[in-house]
Every structure is written in C-alpha cells, then in structure tokens.
C-alpha cells in the first residue's frame, strides 16, 4: 500500500456562526515551536473585524436576554464538547507552545476546568456582584449587573488555550458577545475552539474568532464605535497606550494586560470588568 498523503489544512475564520475565508483572501503559515509547518490560517483584515463586530452586535440581544440558567447549561455543554476534542487540543497546544505531552495535557485539563468554572458563575454573578442598597427614603433600592455589550478580546499570545478560554468564557458567561483575535503564533487551539462552538448550542455570533495579527486588527476594534469594551490581554506591548486612546472615543471599558499566570485561580475580576450596573429605585408603601 502506498504511503498516505497528508491532508493539509487551511483554516478559516469564525464569524456569525459561519466559517468564512478572510475577506482579504490572505492566509499565513502556522508553525510549531520549532518552526515546522503545521497548517495555514486565515489572516484577518479590518473588514473581517467589522463583519465580526456586526455579527456580535446582532447576537447580543438574544444571548444577553437568555436566562442565566440557560446560558450556564449552554456553556456546560461546550465543556462536554471540549472534553471530546481533548486529544486534538493536547497535540495542538504541545506543538504550538513547544511543551511535552504531559504538560500540554495538564493545560488542556485546566482549560476545560476553567470553562466549567466560569459556566458555573452564570447564575451566581448577580448574587455576588448585585446588591440591595440602604437608602434614606421610601424605596427598595437595588443594583444588578448587566453585560456591557460587544467585547473585543485580544487573546493572550503565549497561552493559546488556557489563556484563550479564560478571556472568552469570562466575557460571555455574563451575556456579552465577543470578537476574539486569537494568538498570532499559535492560533490552532482557537480554531478548534471555534469548531467546538459551532457544534454546540452557543448561538452564532456570540463568539467570533479571528486569526491573524493583533497589531493589524486591534486598532480598528479599539476605535469601533459599536464595540463596548476591549480586553487588551494579548495586545502588542508597544501599542497598549495607542489602543487605550482609541478606545476612549466611545468610553469603552478597557482591561489592561498584566503579567497573568493563567494557571492560577482566576478570581472574579475579569468577569466583573465587563459588566455595567443598573440601579433601580422601587417605591414602597407610602
């Protein structure tokens, strides 16, 4: 029998629940940590970012008004599918980040656990972040958290799956929709995540994944007037200030990059950063 020929992959973007090629027609080579060819990935352009923002905006009303219980169920189901793709994730993380299989396995397990952890928060955010406020008047006064809207996420460059899951799940669990720019050097786990999401119950447009250069796409997302927040976790170091300036035009919420240890317990900070607070003054018995 003759030797089998490799099926060489050219991955596409994930926008609005569909897998389009980049509008620009461009792609780039993805290599492993040692520089060997792995696959071709789409090289997203500003117009892909625009389309993704439109898709995210369209998905926002449905996703944000789903009950917290329902969102939680949908996200748990994603965790099940992640589990099903475990071996694929392990090999992609190992190749992309230059890790041993054992270390990659540990990261993938941590990623799935992280997703489950955030899924569990869906119906708890309101209790923890909301409040009943004492006021000097005949009112029952309470504050509830609401999703901020469309969040642009520059995924961490060096943690291609655990970092990605941490920034995406924390944003969508509360009802936001996201446009994610995946790690430029190792985008394959993000591509596989998009395949997982496409076959899950997450409505199209809630998560949109672009592969390519953050330096090229990020300024457009930061300046976009219909994007409500931007997470700069994976922003190019020298562009953070410029992106903050661009984001100020419509008073976007900005989450600055820090030296994150993605394996540490995440805490609620990322989730709470993408919320607005609605306070209601409800008159009581006069």
């Amino acid at each position: 029998m003759s030797e089998r020929i490799d099926v060489r992959k050219t991955y596409k973007l994930y926008i609005g629940g569909k897998f389009p090629r980049s509008e620009s027609g461009r792609s780039y080579e993805v290599t492993d940590a040692k520089g060997r060819f792995l696959a071709n990935a789409a090289l997203a352009s500003r117009k892909d970012a625009r389309d993704a923002a439109v898709a995210a905006r369209a998905a926002f009303p449905g996703w944000s008004s789903a009950t917290a219980y329902n969102r939680g169920q949908v996200l748990y189901r994603v965790a099940e599918l992640l589990e099903g793709r475990r071996t694929q994730f392990v090999s992609e993380v190992a190749a992309g980040e230059g890790l041993t299989a054992r270390k990659a396995e540990a990261l993938v397990d941590a990623s799935i656990d992280r997703w489950v952890w955030y899924a569990g928060w869906s119906d708890k955010v309101m209790q923890v972040h909301g409040s009943a406020n004492p006021v000097a008047g005949p009112y029952f006064d309470f504050s509830v958290p609401e999703p901020t809207g469309v969040v642009a996420v520059l995924a961490p460059q060096n943690s291609s799956l655990l970092g990605l899951v941490s920034v995406v799940a924390s944003a969508i669990v509360t009802g936001n929709t996201v446009v994610v720019v995946a790690s430029e050097r190792s985008p394959l786990p993000a591509v596989t995540l998009s395949e997982v999401l496409a076959t899950s119950d997450v409505p199209g447009g809630v998560v949109n994944i672009l592969t390519g250069r953050a330096a090229e796409v990020a300024p457009w997302l930061a300046a976009h007037m219909d994007v409500n927040a931007i997470d700069l976790a994976g922003a190019p170091v020298d562009s953070v200030t410029d992106l903050q300036v661009a984001a100020a035009d419509n008073l976007k919420r900005v989450l600055l990059p820090r030296l994150d240890d993605w394996t540490a317990t995440p805490g609620t900070e990322r989730m709470f950063a993408m919320l607005e607070t609605k306070t209601v003054w409800h008159p009581i018995g006069v």
Binding site: R50, A53, R57, W220, A223, H224, M225, D226, V227, A246, D249, N250
Partner: peptide, 9 residues
C-alpha cells in the same frame, strides 16, 4: 472619522 460607527449614534 476613519473609524467604524454604530447604530447607537
């Protein structure tokens, strides 16, 4: 303006 606008405006 050189930046994408949104329906909010």
């Amino acid at each position: 303006t050189g930046r994408y606008s949104g329906p909010d405006y």
